[in-house]
C-alpha cells in the first residue's frame, strides 16, 4: 500500500441472508481513498451506502474481500484482529446525520471520551478538545450539556469528537442531511479543510448533489459495484 493511500478496498462483497432470502448488496467493490481526500459516496436509498461505510469502519463484517486502513490490512475474508473496536477508536472518526452525542456528558467530556479511553491523559485530551472547540467556534460551550446547544452547535461538537483521537480516516454518514444549504456548505467545507490540514481521508455519504462540487471525487454504487468518478462540472452550489 502506498504511503498516500488511507483506505483501500479490494473485491469487497456483502450479502445479507441466505438461500431464497439472500440479498446481494455489494458485489466486488474496488476503490481507494487517499490521505487529504474528501470523497462523496452516493447511491439511491437502500443501495448499500451505509453498509459500505460500516464495513470500512469495521462495524459490519463483509462477506468476503480485503480492506486496508492506513498501512494495516484489517480484513482478508475475515477480520485479522479481534479488536475491531480498537481500530475504530484509534484510526477512525465517525460523523452521523444526527449528532449522537452522549446526553449525560457535557461537550468537553463527549470530545475527550475516546482519547481518554485510548490512554491520553485528561489534561492533554482536554487541551486538544479545547483547541478543536475553539476551531469550531464553540469554545465557550465546553461545559454545556448537548441539550443546551442548537442542532448546528451539536453537529460541530460531533465533528470535534470525530477529530479528537487524531484519526486517519473520517467516515461521515449524511452529515448535512438535517441542515439547510448554507450550514451544509459550511460543514462540507469544514470536512474538506480537515482533510487537507490534518491529512485525513474523508468518505462522506450524501444525497445532496449540491455538495458534490466541494468534494474531490465521487464514489457511486451502481449495479452493486462501486464506481469512482470525478466531480461533474455542471453542478454548482448557490
Amino acid at each position: 500500500m502506498s504511503s498516500k493511500q488511507s483506505i483501500k478496498v479490494e473485491n469487497l462483497v456483502k450479502h445479507f441472508g441466505s438461500g431464497d432470502n439472500l440479498v446481494r448488496v455489494i458485489e466486488g467493490a474496488d476503490f481507494q481513498v487517499d490521505k487529504g481526500e474528501l470523497v462523496a459516496l452516493i447511491a439511491p436509498s437502500g443501495a448499500g451506502k451505509t453498509t459500505l461505510l460500516m464495513m470500512i469502519g469495521c462495524v459490519e463484517e463483509p462477506t468476503s474481500g480485503r480492506i486496508w486502513l492506513g498501512d494495516d490490512k484489517v480484513y482478508d475474508n475475515k477480520w485479522l484482529t479481534r479488536e475491531t473496536r480498537k481500530i475504530r477508536r484509534e484510526k477512525i472518526g465517525f460523523i452521523f446525520q444526527a449528532h449522537y452525542l452522549i446526553p449525560f456528558l457535557n461537550v468537553i467530556e463527549n470530545v475527550t471520551l475516546v482519547p481518554q479511553t485510548n490512554g491520553v491523559s485528561k489534561k492533554d485530551s482536554e487541551a486538544k478538545a479545547k483547541e478543536l472547540l475553539e476551531y469550531f467556534d464553540i469554545g465557550n460551550k465546553a461545559r454545556a450539556m448537548p441539550s443546551e446547544l442548537s442542532g448546528g452547535q451539536n453537529q460541530r461538537v460531533a465533528i470535534a469528537r470525530a477529530l479528537a483521537n487524531s484519526p486517519e480516516i473520517i467516515l461521515a454518514d449524511e452529515p448535512t442531511a438535517a441542515l439547510d444549504l448554507a450550514r451544509s456548505v459550511d460543514v462540507v467545507k469544514m470536512l474538506k479543510k480537515i482533510a487537507i490540514e490534518q491529512d485525513v481521508a474523508v468518505i462522506m455519504v450524501t444525497h445532496d448533489e449540491a455538495m458534490l462540487p466541494l468534494c474531490d471525487r465521487i464514489l457511486k454504487i451502481e449495479n452493486k459495484k462501486v464506481v469512482s468518478s470525478d466531480v461533474p462540472k455542471d453542478i454548482h452550489i448557490l
Binding site: 462495524v59 452522549i102 446526553p103 471520551l113 479511553t117 469528537r161
Partner: peptide
C-alpha cells in the same frame, strides 16, 4: 442508543 454509539466510536465493553 448511547451504548450503541459508544460501541460504534470504539469504547470497549469493559468501560
Amino acid at each position: 442508543k448511547e451504548i450503541s454509539i459508544m460501541k460504534l466510536i470504539g469504547i470497549p465493553n469493559s468501560i
